[in-house]
């Protein structure tokens, strides 16, 4: 009797094994074919000199040539610098989002309506939103410059067409798009702070600033940290906005790594060289993730 029981449970275990593999198989196969193999492919191709149109026979091993070239490629170096400048949007978004989320969470009526309003740019299509900003920022007849001129500013900047203002304009639009997402996450974080902490502080007679500094800020630090890291990684993936609005111009002033990668791979058809850019992008994201794991223990109060 005991034996049959065991064999039944064993066969059930074996069945569950097979079922388990079948359940995860579609996702795993998809990920292996569409992510794992391509990443390894990028790694290998980055050491070659190749235009894929010429066929597989034309692949030439180039050693580290691509990487040496990258560091003398002024457009690529500019894209790295621009990506680094773009990081500034992350703390700006965080500070604005924290301030607004505290107001929305505690100090206003119709909380849900405010969440929706700030969230609109995030759910809207970037292409459509970018087209709107393109018109708003139009140098001569856009509403922004018309308003500035009516306020007595004779020569307002040309915004997206201006070599000095194009990048800041894009950064401003980026903050506008991501603010709502950050607010939603912050509100969720704020609501998880235990109320009795504030009640205890009230009994001690702490003022608003002290409560913010000593309760809100430390308790919300995991959220801040999460938004900071995903935000920074996000800035390195930025592409749509640039492709629609400036295509890296004027004079490479708004180009970013992914735009360079796209342009090199699909317009200039330099497959190997573009792959070396992909590898740099991958390494940057890896370094940020690694740094996050190290920093998490030090900075975040759980």
């Amino acid at each position: 009797m005991k034996r049959t029981n065991k064999s039944i449970s064993l066969s059930m275990g074996a069945k569950e094994q097979v079922a388990g593999y079948l359940f995860v198989a579609p996702l795993m196969i998809g990920l292996i074919i569409l992510t794992l193999i391509p990443v390894i492919g990028s790694l290998l191709l980055s050491f070659t000199n190749w235009n894929f149109v010429a066929g597989i026979g034309a692949i030439k091993f180039a050693g580290l040539d691509n990487f040496a070239r990258l560091f003398h490629d002024s457009a690529f170096m500019q894209s790295l610098v621009n990506n680094l400048i773009f990081i500034i949007t992350v703390p700006i978004t965080l500070i604005l989002a924290l301030a607004l989320s505290i107001l929305i969470d505690k100090h206003v009526y119709m909380k849900d309506a405010f969440k929706v309003v700030y969230f609109l740019p995030y759910i809207s299509s970037i292409v459509a939103v970018a087209m709107v900003w393109q018109v708003l920022f139009h140098p001569s007849f856009g509403p922004v410059n018309k308003t500035l001129m009516s306020m007595g500013i004779a020569n307002p900047p040309k915004w997206l067409a201006d070599i000095d203002f194009a990048l800041p304009s894009l950064m401003m639009i980026q903050v506008w798009i991501l603010l709502g997402y950050n607010i939603i996450i912050y509100i969720a974080g704020l609501q998880s702070i235990p109320k009795d902490l504030y009640e205890a502080a009230d009994i001690d007679g702490a003022n608003t600033w002290v409560k913010f500094r000593n309760i809100t800020l430390p308790c919300i630090s995991p959220t801040t940290f999460f938004l900071l890291v995903t935000g920074i990684i996000g800035t390195f993936k930025i592409f749509d906005l640039i492709q629609v609005l400036t295509q890296g111009g004027p004079a490479n002033s708004t180009t970013v790594i992914v735009y360079e990668l796209y342009d090199t791979a699909f317009n200039q058809l330099k497959t190997g060289y573009a792959s070396s850019m992909a590898l740099i992008l991958f390494l940057i994201c890896l370094i940020i993730t690694g740094a996050q794991m190290l920093a998490q223990k030090k900075w975040v109060n759980y």
């Binding site: 795993m28 569409l34 492919g41 791979a265």
Partner: peptide, 21 residues
């Protein structure tokens, strides 16, 4: 764990080989 690791790959890092495939 493999899935978690792949999550760190920026989608654009696999774009060119995806296109070739």
């Amino acid at each position: 764990v493999l899935v978690l690791a792949l999550y760190m790959v920026p989608p654009q890092a696999s774009l060119v080989p995806q296109f070739l495939l």
